[in-house]
Design a protein around this nucleic acid. Structure first.
Lengths: 338, 338
DNA sequence: CACCCCTGTCGAAGCGCTTCGACGAACTTG
DNA sequence: CAAGTTCGTCGAAGCGCTTCGACAGGGGTG
């Protein structure tokens, strides 16, 4: 391994000069800089990460905590994680992948070992066990998601309440009066993952304002579950003319089952989903949907956390991305005379 | 931050003694050990990762390179990544997440900076640009996937050829004679990702042995693409009574389109897929499938790479996991008289 | 009983880097 | 033209840990 000292010798300068060339923290004459840069290139020098971290107490690593469970939202999680990794690299940071499994334990471990300069947490529950630790931690953290109490926390998330409202609004505008919500799996609500509840709140409030009748049912992504949920919904509310799908895994089964039961989408029944654009676009009927902007969420989280690392940026900052509804083919004017 | 020295003072021993208690590399009397462990606990001591890495030239980090593209196989990738992370933690390692985007560049960076003790690479192409670097690298690496030339390389993968053969066998056993293969997207073959070709080879060879007529068509995961592929297949081979699906994203559209076209699965047409068990089990018709054992692949890769880090384990070792076919409901006896 | 060996502990020397203070040399400025 | 600046570079200290060699003391051996 090539060391700083070797580069220095090769360039005929002192080690500190090389260091300053690399970091740019002191002014260096153009001639010297060039000589050093040449040596770096010729010798193929890479600074030793451990030594650098030790000397500067900065690892240039951001820890990312990804939920382990694969029962929900896998593509979104993956997309966010990859966006985070990509964005971090453009700022010179690497990503340390932590599984949600380790929980608060991992927060302590990272904090204590100075392995990472900051953390980004996904899959935040409303009353997450990791929050107290983060509030008192000496290292910055950013949540992707929104807990119940955001004091002293930095968060990035889609404004799911607004997303819900947007869905209600769109369906109301199309003349629908009875709307059913295919929710997330019951487990998601029990875990009190914020986005599910917030979407629902947004849906409910806007529905009240607009005089929509709303029926919400939790639902797994399997055919059996969607099928059962669907029967119950039509039993209770035969006049249902539109669906809002919260659980992206349920979209395909829903469309298939509606078709099987002789209901055409969007002629007889409209469907609006909250899901990544890719899922919406590739469904059997391209879905009118509110996108979950995974890429942007990841990017914003990185930018926010780096701002904090560098001493810019306030503590406590909640970024709620404005939802956008894309009209595709699954939602249309309500059938007349219902 | 609590340091080793503080723990030593608190326990009334020297720093080196604390270090040896922690690493177990020299024998320490039970009394001393206990005193030190107490101090560690009381002070909430965590070793500084950078310092440790510098002194021992070991970071306890394994770099994992995950493909960036989300066009294929996302759930499998995610599952492998998570399995790798989990398995690594049980051995005391953390995972550094690299995106495939960086390519060979990242290999050099990690190697040079000593950021990680080893690498695990996913989405290996047959003639991957990263391979030469890995062969000459001073740090161990394990591939998840199988390149064309495995000399000097450690690999873990499903035996996709055997998986293909297994599918052919199963369908032949059920009396099918004309089988169509819904392949991966054309881009996957162009990239020369090994598993796609190997599956096909396995299918072809066993089909030849058993006298099956095989027709292979690349196919994207969208409804439009599956629909087009399906028409072409039935045009060319109206007698087709069974499908092998390689592209997991195509399973749902395939089942839906077959149903729409009045073909019942498995009464009229059988379907066998190569995909994760979860996908197979949750399809609208539970799929008879050969599982892609993502969890096990991740775990094995970690075990192999750690063995190499610790000086155990040979260089050049190819682990091909034996495929297993699970009978569910999508494949049945070929219709009589075809 | 003199010897050696083992066990448990310590001190000190780095690992490769950053960063602070110092210091000539070259420039201003009154 | 003396005094004060600024600029570019260097030396040395130190980040927190691991690890090597040393060494004291207690047992076993011949």
């Amino acid at each position: 391994m090539v060391t700083l000292a070797e580069v220095a010798r090769h360039a005929g300068v002192s080690a500190s000069t090389v260091s300053y060339v690399l970091s740019g923290k002191r002014s260096i004459s153009a001639a010297t800089r060039e000589r050093v840069e040449n040596s770096v290139r010729q010798l193929g020098y890479h600074p030793n990460a451990g030594a650098r971290a030790l000397a500067s107490s900065k690892s240039n690593i951001i820890a990312l905590m990804v939920p382990l469970r694969t029962d929900m939202y896998v593509p979104v999680m993956m997309e966010i994680a990859m966006a985070v990794a990509t964005a971090a690299r453009t700022h010179g940071y690497d990503i340390l992948l932590l599984t949600g499994e380790e929980g608060a334990q991992a927060v302590r471990r990272i904090e204590g070992s100075a392995l990472a300069d900051a953390m980004i947490l996904m899959d935040v529950e409303l009353d997450d066990e990791r929050l107290p630790l983060l509030r008192t931690a000496s290292r910055p953290a950013v949540l992707i998601g929104l807990p119940a109490d955001t004091t002293g926390l930095n968060c990035v998330d889609l404004d799911f309440a607004a997303a819900g409202a947007l869905c209600a609004q769109h369906l109301a505008d199309l003349g629908h009066r009875e709307v059913a919500v295919i929710g997330e799996a019951a487990a998601v609500y029990e875990r009190r993952t914020g986005f599910a509840e917030r979407t629902l709140t947004g849906l409910r409030e806007r529905s009240n304002e607009l005089g929509l009748r709303l029926l919400h049912r939790p639902c797994e992504g399997s055919y059996a579950s969607v099928s059962a949920t669907l029967s119950r919904i039509f039993d209770e509310r035969p006049g249902t003319s539109a669906f809002v799908v919260q659980n992206e895994a349920a979209t395909d089964p829903l469309l298939a089952l509606l078709r099987q039961s002789g209901r055409a989408v969007p002629e007889d029944v409209s469907v609006v989903a909250v899901c990544p654009d890719q899922v919406a676009a590739h469904a059997s009927v391209p879905l009118t949907s509110v996108a979950v902007p995974a890429q942007e969420m990841g990017r914003r989280a990185v930018e926010q956390v780096i701002a904090k690392i560098e001493g810019r940026g306030s503590d406590e900052e909640v970024v709620l991305l404005a939802p956008e509804l894309t009209v595709r083919e699954s939602a249309a004017q309500a059938p007349a005379g219902v």
